[in-house]
Write a protein that binds this DNA or RNA. Structure first.
Lengths: 100, 100
DNA sequence: TTGATATATCGAGATTTATCAATATGTTTG
DNA sequence: CAAACATATTGATAAATCTCGATATATCAA
């Protein structure tokens, strides 16, 4: 994995709330209420639920999720007006392997 | 691994030069000249060699190495007036495992 | 002990990041 | 289409980080 990508991923992880989000998304059903429209967690969790859990502003969370998606840590899927985010396990594994 | 430690380690890795140092130390003999007094790399590489390779100031490198040691990424050993730094493979492995 | 060398710490200015409110964009539904 | 809702972007300020030169501390060697 390219050094610049390692740096960008590390920057994402180096913020306590972003790290929490990454951890919550490992098992969404343990940390978030069920969705109403999309009745599963296959694509992760919608931004609103994440925002509510963090108590940070909507714009901050949107920025966080966007930067985590940009470096590949998260995969986002749009369902209507909702954006869902899930972990990109492949990339996380690659990141871990690069460091070892 | 505690979230705060993950954050501190990530902060260290999120700087391009600190990441390079961490990578160089994986195989010191490929990246640094042999030492004169301590004639092996068992304890890693002395701060001066690392500083010369980076072209950053002595104080900057000293700070970098110190913060990497403080969070456990590096292990330092003093030999006389030289400080040697090597990777803490155990902690790096723990960090990787925590993320996966 | 003194001078030379290696490393650590301090103080400061420049850059980056954190975080918000306000606003814009996109999507659904009446 | 218009209102309502979810998300994204912009602009701004406070806080943190980067990086240096200067200086302090530690150790060796003469």
């Amino acid at each position: 994995m390219d050094d610049r990508l390692v740096v960008d991923i590390s920057k994402c992880i180096s913020n306590p709330m972003r790290l929490k989000i990454l951890n919550w998304l490992r098992q969404p059903e343990n940390h978030f209420p069920p969705h109403n429209v999309v009745r599963h967690f296959n694509d992760g969790v919608c931004a609103t639920y994440i925002q509510e859990k963090t108590n940070l502003s909507q714009s901050t969370i949107s920025t966080y999720l966007s930067m985590m998606e940009k470096c590949g840590l998260l995969i986002s899927t749009r369902h209507g007006k909702w954006s869902y985010f899930k972990r990109n396990e492949t990339l996380i594994q690659q990141y871990a392997n690069t460091l070892i």
